[in-house]
Amino acid sequence: MSTINFAAREINFKLVYYGPGLSGKTTNLKQIHAHVPVESKGEMVSLQTEDERTLFFDFLPLDLGKVNGFKTRFHLYTVPGQVFYNASRRLILRGVDGVVFVADSAPNRLRANAESLRNLRENLAEHGLSLGDLPYVIQLNKRDLADALPVDMIRAVLDPDGVAPLFEAVAQRHVGVIEPLKAVSKLVLEKLAQRA
């Protein structure tokens, strides 16, 4: 949940990029880091294996500036997508305010997408949260693949009711990276306004 720090006059939000292994979560953060102006970003921290798979998380702080006298910041995290790192994923979800689910468009990853989403629901439940009341958007990544599955087919599996905003992306070419980030950030702010 968003935290307010009166001592330092800061409001902080935590956004988590979730999804199956190799879907492009880390690529999203790298692209955001590369394109946001220096004064609005901090260092990117990556805890990864030698072959560049996320081991624990990637982290990137974004600084929005002052809002009503409060320094307002978004902390972006990725989880490790590989199935056996579930303990780490659960830890990263602690205090989450919004989720970008990065799905892989490759036909042979459809099942991995569905399993990762189910795993997200389970891990959120451990924190007493559910996807229904959390700001949540889906990014369909790797749209450049020659055999990318049709959008509707992936949506039918991940979001049959069509409730989550959905964005097509080619993250490694910085296409469709900013839109889901901006959308989930706005949802987080709207939710805050409703509760206030």
């Binding site: 409060f70 307002t72 901006k182 306004a193």
Partner: peptide, 27 residues
């Protein structure tokens, strides 16, 4: 706890800053 002005106006101002930071959101 001090009362923070984080109602609707907070979201509106923060939303405007998001637009500024990310442009129209198109890549």
């Amino acid at each position: 706890a001090p009362v923070a002005d984080i109602g609707g106006s907070f979201s509106v101002h923060a939303g405007a800053l998001l637009d500024e930071l990310f442009g129209d959101g198109k890549t």
